[in-house]
Simulated scan of single mutants.
Amino acid sequence: MSKVVIETFDSRDAAYDAAAEAVAEALRAGLRTKGYASLAGAGGSTPAPVYERLSAMPLAWDQVTAALVDERFVPNTAPDSNEKLLREHLLKDQAAKARFTPMYSDGAPSEAAAVASKTHAKLLPLDAVLLGMGEDGHFASLFPDNPALEEGLDLSSRKVVIAAPAGEPAPPQTRLTFTLAALAQSRSLVLLVTGAAKKAVVEAALDDPARYPIGAVFAQTKAPVRVLWAA
């Protein structure tokens, strides 16, 4: 049902190298055609080495705007803030000149989502998106059985950012997240996964997209998708 294939690498370092180059090439393409480019990146530990590699690349970073695909509803000073992670691993060295558009803001989650929808709409279409995935098949903050999942996966939605409430089994805290409709406008979607368990989830989602949220990424036909995997 999908033309997406799993690109397998001999080591995680090789996968990180490939992910960094894929993101960089999409940014270069945006810079060539428009004179500016935008990137949305995932949080978590998996993409951090990719950000480290990107931060050392000689791009026209002063014409690049970085953002997050999702954010925990916490200030950027909190230890588990995705913004904090991005600032520590990407927005330094060569990439220190890049602009950053935050997703979190004070107020109720719904209010913060409305603010972020306006600011992040200015970044669309994104040139590069680096996604991660959980073993439950979630991407960004679109979790199985979460009340926000249906709205988040609706490709006809005009919303750019929505709030995903804390729930069972996940997430344990409220989050803000790009919708798939917004992400699907991108020049390039790169999904980086590691480990046998996540590979099995990707394979299952490629076979039956409705089984996991990540399957909706594979099923959409608007944006090209690359899946990079290493044990």
Rank of each mutant, 00 (worst) to 15 (best):
P213C: 12
D70I: 09
Q63A: 15
A116F: 08
R32A: 15
A148N: 05
E135M: 07
T179Q: 02
V64M: 04
L183K: 02
S11N: 07
A19V: 07
G152I: 08
G35Y: 03
H138I: 08
A37L: 03
R72Q: 09
L176A: 08
D136N: 12
V69A: 04
L91Y: 03
V50Y: 00
T194Y: 01
L130S: 04
L189G: 06
V129F: 02
P49A: 13
K92H: 13
V193P: 01
R28T: 07
Q63G: 01
L191Y: 00
L123D: 05
D13N: 13
D17F: 01
S81P: 10
G30M: 03
F73D: 03
E88R: 15
S186E: 01
L180G: 06
R32V: 15
K199G: 12
W61L: 10
K118I: 11
G215V: 05
Y212G: 11
V5C: 09
R28D: 02
E21A: 14
P169D: 07
T77V: 13
A113E: 02
A216H: 13
G107P: 12
G167M: 06
H89W: 01
E150D: 12
S81H: 04
P165R: 11
L142N: 11
E25T: 13
P209N: 13
L123Y: 02
L86S: 07
S186F: 00
P172W: 01
D17L: 03
L189K: 00
R32F: 06
P213G: 11
L176I: 10
E151Y: 02
